[in-house]
Amino acid sequence: MTLEALAIGQRARIVAVDWDRVAPEDGKRLRALGIDEGARIAIAHRGVLGGRDPIAIMIGRMTIALRRAHAEAMTVEHL
């Protein structure tokens, strides 16, 4: 399943990232923040005003906001 499909609060591990679907600069930024294969994450918040964008994920003790399009490029498995 993709990170996009993950339920709020469910813990998961990123098992694969399709970096070709992410803009190069965005990819650099995500990796610098530790969002990469092997990272343990959970979705904390999703969407504003009825939309599904943006998404706030927890990684360690950091909260990172990203877009749905980024989350769709990431494959996760439940922990």
Partner: peptide, 12 residues
Amino acid sequence: GDASGFIMELPR
């Protein structure tokens, strides 16, 4: 250009 991304740390 392409739609831009949004990646941002939400500090405590």
